[in-house]
Simulated assay, not measured.
Amino acid sequence: MFHSLILLVAEAATESGGGLFDLDATLPLMAIQFLILVAVLNALFYKPLGKVLDDRDAYIRGTQAEAKERLMKAQELARQFERELADTRREAQTTIATAQAEAEKISAEKVAAAQQEAQTQREQVQAELDQQKAEAMQSLEQQVDALSQQILQKLLGGVSLG
């Protein structure tokens, strides 16, 4: 239909026969054709293209907003994990300090018990040595007495007492 309208207008323009710049109905007809072409191009190409561009822009903005939101959540989680890590480190240091204090206490108790046991054993050995010394002294005294008696008898054996 559009094509036949253009042909009809073209036939009417050629029948009148004009010069180089004939200002008859051709100029307005060309202007109308140009406007119709612009309207058709706008309806067929530019509006869908504009819609696609607008949709793409909206998608990019939505994705960007979502990415910013995720970044904020990730940063908050990172801060939370850092706080929890610091708390855990403090708890670990407290636990280590407590364990060291308990280990030192147990070590001190065991050292004291070992020293006490060593002292007890030393006292027992000293008591045994003193007892053996006393027995040895008593045995020596008996032997000295016996020898003294023998010596006296031998010395006095030649002499009669009376």
Rank of each mutant, 00 (worst) to 15 (best):
L23C: 11
I6N: 01
L35R: 01
I6V: 09
Q100I: 05
K73T: 04
L85H: 01
E91A: 06
A12I: 02
A39H: 05
R89H: 10
A39C: 10
K68F: 15
V125M: 08
R56T: 15
E123G: 10
G19D: 03
Q132V: 12
Q153R: 09
E128S: 09
A101Q: 11
A99D: 04
K133D: 03
A99N: 06
G157E: 03
L152D: 08
G158E: 07
I151P: 01
K110Q: 12
R61Q: 14
Q33P: 00
Q116I: 05
E117T: 08
D57M: 09
E76I: 01
E66T: 15
E91C: 03
L147S: 11
R56M: 11
E109G: 07
M30F: 02
G50R: 06
D57T: 14
K110W: 06
L41Q: 03
E117S: 10
E15Q: 14
A114M: 12
F45N: 04
E76S: 10
Q115N: 14
T88H: 03
Q143N: 11
E109H: 14
Q75Y: 03
A67F: 11
M1T: 00
L5N: 02
L156W: 05
E15Y: 13
E117I: 06
Y46T: 08
A31Y: 03
A58F: 08
S16N: 07
V38Q: 04
E104D: 13
K47N: 07
Q124H: 13
L155V: 13
A31H: 07
Q64L: 06
L71P: 01
E123F: 13
L27I: 10
S160P: 01
K154E: 12
A113R: 15
Q115Y: 13
A43L: 06
V159R: 04
A146K: 07
G158W: 02
L85K: 02
V40W: 00
Q119Y: 15
L8S: 01
